[in-house]
């Protein structure tokens, strides 16, 4: 899967005509992006104890493309986390269906999830934490160690494999959590405001790290955030959601190119997107 994703990236040159986003370009070229999973009129209704029902997510339809970085952005209560948890299989559907291209995830290694907090096992070292999924999937220990070490190096924690979670800073712990979610090469990585608890500087650095990791692994990432800037900086596409009932109110194909760096933050198009997204969030 990553192969396709990478080829798509290469075809897309940021210096050429970049008014069109990735999806538009592909459509022009006659190729459609591969849909990894299609959410078809997915709804979620919670029933309170009083018997009232609350529609957390109105019928929502969205295609998630192979290898893309898709952000879900919106105010709290807009159902963005609910939608993500539905994709992860952590919530049941009240209506609609999810169509996976290769069948619904049945193995634990199909989906990677990064929570708002690191959610590491405090009694395990960083290496053991990152290797944890591989242990669960019965990967031989040697191979597991090798892959976990490679992943730790990728997130810049190579020197800290023996450390316990409590000995690391919040940003480092979150990087370990990302390494744990990527180490088994899931079909899709779901991230629920992973950098929400970090300070701005660390957050910027983590964003760059994440882009770099994504370029190396070619993973499909669905990313929930309430930061407009973060969404614009990271994403190929942004789905804007609004509350009561939670729904997708706009879907944008960003034309900022696949190569992102600090420089893009001075690009007028970046500002254009920030203002567009901000208006839509009002």
């Amino acid at each position: 899967m990553s192969f396709d994703g990478k080829v798509l990236f290469c075809e897309h040159r940021p210096n050429n005509e970049t008014k069109l986003g990735k999806v538009e370009k592909l459509k022009q070229a006659g190729t459609h992006p591969q849909v990894l999973v299609r959410a078809d009129a997915v709804t979620k209704i919670y029933r309170s104890r009083m018997g009232e029902s609350v529609e957390a997510l109105a019928p929502t339809t969205l295609d998630i493309h192979e290898g893309e970085f898709l952000s879900l952005i919106g105010p709290s209560g807009c159902g963005k986390s609910t939608f993500l948890r539905i994709l992860a299989g952590l919530e049941t559907l009240s209506g609609g269906k999810l169509e996976w291209r290769d069948g619904a995830p049945t193995k634990g290694s199909d989906v990677g999830f990064v929570f708002q907090e690191p959610v590491l096992l405090p009694w395990l070292s960083i290496l053991d934490n990152v290797r944890f999924p591989l242990d669960v999937f019965r990967t031989p220990k040697n191979e597991g160690n090798e892959r976990a070490r490679a992943m730790l190096a990728l997130v810049g924690l190579g020197a800290f494999e023996k450390a316990l979670p409590k000995e690391l800073s919040g940003g480092m712990r979150q990087r370990a959590a990302i390494a744990r979610a990527l180490v088994y090469r899931p079909r899709i990585v779901l991230m629920d405001e992973p950098f929400g608890a970090l300070d701005l500087l660390t957050r910027d650095r983590m964003n760059d790290e994440l882009l770099r990791i994504k370029n190396e692994t070619g993973s499909t990432i669905v990313f929930v955030t309430h930061s407009i800037e973060e969404a614009a900086y990271l994403s190929d596409r942004v789905a804007v959601m609004s509350a009561r009932p939670g729904r997708i109110s706009a879907l944008h194909d960003l034309d900022l190119g696949p190569e992102r760096s600090e420089a893009i933050k001075d690009d007028p198009r970046f500002y254009q997107w920030l203002s567009t997204l901000r208006k839509e969030l009002r």
Binding site: G89, G112, V119, F132
Partner: peptide
């Protein structure tokens, strides 16, 4: 055991037994 650890076990599809041995009991120590 924090709710998120239960979610992690659900994501990784740990069996009841494995969840107990690998997560719940160590967390309860």
């Amino acid at each position: 055991v924090p709710a998120n650890l239960h979610s992690l076990c659900a994501i990784l599809k740990l069996s009841q037994r494995e969840k107990l041995v690998r997560v719940e009991l160590p967390a309860a120590v």
